[in-house]
Design a protein around this nucleic acid. Sequence first.
DNA 1: GTAGGGTTAG
Length: 810
Amino acid sequence: MRIALTSPTTLTLNILQTDTRAVANYYAAALHLCFHQIPTSYSLTRTVHAHMITSGFNPRGHILNRLIDIYCKSSNLFYALHLFDNIPQPDIIARTTLITAHSAAGNTKIAKEIFDGTPLSMRDRVCYNAMITAYSHSCDGNAAMELFREMRLLGFQPDNYTFTSVLSGLALIADRETHCQQLHCVVLKSGTGFVTSVVNALISVYVKCASSPLVVASSLMSSARRLFDEMPVKDELSWTTIITGYVKNDDLDGARQVFDGMDVKLVVAWNSIISGYVHKSFLHEALRMFREMHLLGIKQDEFTYTSAFSACSDGRFYRLGKQLHGYIIRTENCPSQEFLISVNNSLISFYSKCGMVDDAKKIFDKMEVRDLVSGNAVLSAYVNAGRINEARSIFSKMPERNLLTWTVMISGFSQNGFGEEGIKLFNQMRSNGLGPCDYAYAGAITSCSVIAALEHGRQLHAQLIQSGFDSSLSASNALITMYARCSVIEDASLVFHTMSCVDSVSWNAMIAALGQHGKGAQALELFNQMLKEEILPDRITFLTILSACSHAGLVREGRHYFDSMHDLYGITPGEDHYGRLIDLLCRAAMFSEAKDVIDMMPFEPGAPIWEALLSGCRLHGNVDLGAEAAERLLELTPHHDGTYVLLANMYATAGRWDEMAKVRKLMRDRGVKKEPGCSWIEVENSVHVFLVNDIEHPEVQGVYEYLKELLPKMKKLGYVPDTKFALHITESEQQESNLSTHSEKLAVVFGLLKLPVGATVRVFKNLRICGDCHNAFKFMSLVVGREIVVRDGKRFHHFKEGQCSCGNYW
DNA sequence: GTAGGGTTAG
């Protein structure tokens, strides 16, 4: 008999004897050689196995087990299983081998079948260990825990392996303090409390349990720390487990303390701390450590770089990010594929977040190998830049998608006003078998608010509750806005007031809901309540507040809040805030004050400022100032059609028809498609157009006459509020008031009244139904005795018998 | 044991 290993993959087989015992020994030795070449020994093993078959040798017992083991370990489960199935009475070793192999291959179900098929009398500790590992591996912590209990009840003594597996399984379901402590006791009693791997696993359970929202993190982290401090032997894992534990529990000082005590600081530890600083937005500190690491000559890896780019995505560090990009290209001579994918992915997101979408796309295009994250990153780059068509095209070409991909696209649609497509995509995602997460729900709900699909929104709300996501902040915040935009402000309020925890987004949403419904005073009341509860207002809160003041004509209050923004809350007003302030002043016809604000602004006025001024001038027919604003606006954004429309309407409001005619000629010459002061009403594919401010237009004349007639009746029935309401019909009435009900809307009503009952009506354009308009519509429905339905791109309103409801329409 | 891709408010 001769066995020779001539090369790593060749085995010379030579059988000279027929003594079965000797043959068995011979094969055992051959398999021993194969075993030591796992995982590349597959063909070698096949040769030995084939040899057995041709020579009539029937492998049994430990030889068969070894063969199964090798097949399993060299990723050939198929052969292993085939062999196993032909064993009349497989012993515990064969079974355990297969359980381990199936578990490693991710097939817990088969592992469980084998385990369940193993008689109790045959089971041993190793077999239990294997099955517990299988459960932990498949993230089934409960099953792991249960089997651990069963094992102990049956009198098996757990060992290191048992504890490590059951602890790693338990880490998945760690949300109960008692669980950890019980297991801790068992570990101590078993005498394995000094084994490094077991203590590491125990620390890991404490750490994960501390991250659970249901427990007090600090005491669990202290237990973990005590375990760590008392460990007789610490390995790399011990250090990183405790450091990342602190980082995950937002205790960067704790992490830092342990980190500083490390003799040899591991790259993983650096990375973990740096990423912690980035997540907590301590960007300077993150970058400081990054630099320190670099100066100390520690080799930085893809994890370090991705955190660094994430820090640089803030915009303040754009140049640094660019430099780092160049540095990596220069110094990484032979980067691995993993390195390239990770770093490029983070570069895509870096460039995109700094507003350089095309640079982000360039990185994506240049990548030789991409993964799902690359696709998602470039998709969200386009979505955030509002380039929805490019996003759509990326989405359709993506070779694989996950929940995140769908969520990005759904919210991309909703953010860009494509509500129907958002809802459609959400449904498609579900029919593809992907369970929505709360972010996806938030996107779908926002889609509903975009098209005012109240009934659909209500259904989603119900499903949200059913699937247990109703505690989700983002979904609830989206619900507030959905109900508000569908004019069911009571439901918006109900969602807000029943939320178990709210954030500034929730407050902003609710304040905006009130402000948009003309309830300016209530909006301010809620804002003050927010301050009382010590929630810090942010930039958006102030935008909302300024709008609310503007709509309610609360000039003094608006100015006060504008000033307090900087003085009390340290928020520097941006151009958008100045825009709202100017809007506020102009609506109150305080033009010289508005002009003063523009002159004193710390930056050059841009398009939003001039636009606010122009709209104010349009409202009051302030032709001179308006013309100046329009001129500036046309210099800055020459292709923006809205400017022409505003300008034309301004002249119309002032009754300067010659100038208006000039603007309209200009519009025709420059190919502007929009009509000044128009509303479109589409009825079963035909479109009626009403030119509202063009007094000479016969349809508009009709509207004006009609409204003039109705106004006294409205006042009599109380549909006109006491103050600050005006139908935009006569010059004198306009001057009386700070506000104007958009005459476009009234034109729409006028048009609707002439339509057959039940006709499908879609109203395009940005016709927001403010509180005043609401009253006018209610009144119309009462007077003319028919239902009026308005879909204004944002909301859906159903007026009937002098009331408005927005339900039961979709 | 570490990273990179998401949401909601104007």
